[in-house]
């Protein structure tokens, strides 16, 4: 009986731990607005302002280069997809719709995978700090309150 209780207790603790810390992919998906905005900002900001933006997000200076590398990679691949999409926009009818749909899906997948890559590139402390900050930021998106 005591072994059963012990096993049950371990299972409950394990479940609680898993529940407390969802996988990175899940956390990224839940907060994808943040990552899309972050990539877009780093893409448009002049080089001298990028580090200021990362500091604003609370990312330590020694981690900036890692983040900038992933963001640059995303921007480059996204630009390629955009060029493809723009050439497809010149096409007509169903063919255009199918091809555009496929490229848009590819871009969505790229956004998610590079956001995960970015988070993985950070050391554990910075990652947790950023997740905490993202959580605060996400709370600021207005949600309709039902009366």
């Amino acid at each position: 009986m005591s072994k059963l209780l012990s096993a049950l207790s371990t299972f409950v603790m394990f479940t609680a731990l898993v529940a407390a810390e969802p996988p990175l992919q899940v956390q990224v998906t839940a907060n994808i607005e943040f990552f899309e905005h972050m990539f877009a900002t780093l893409d448009m900001a002049p080089e001298t302002a990028r580090s200021t933006f990362l500091s604003h997000l609370g990312i330590p200076k020694e981690e900036h280069q890692k983040v900038l590398s992933v963001a640059a990679e995303f921007s480059s691949k996204e630009a390629q997809l955009r060029t493809q999409a723009q050439s497809i926009l010149a096409l007509k009818g169903a063919e255009q719709s199918v091809l555009l749909g496929s490229i848009r899906a590819e871009r969505t997948e790229l956004l998610h995978s590079d956001a995960v890559l970015l988070m993985k590139s950070l050391d554990s402390g910075s990652r947790q700090a950023l997740l905490g900050r993202i959580s605060q930021m996400q709370k600021l998106i207005p949600k309709r309150v039902s009366n």
């Binding site: 943040f34 905005h37 930021m137 709370k139 600021l140 998106i141 207005p142 949600k143 309709r144 309150v145």
Partner: peptide, 11 residues
């Protein structure tokens, strides 16, 4: 809505 602010400029 929540946050219940008349103007919310964030993020």
């Amino acid at each position: 809505w929540s946050p219940s602010r008349c103007l919310n400029v964030s993020n």
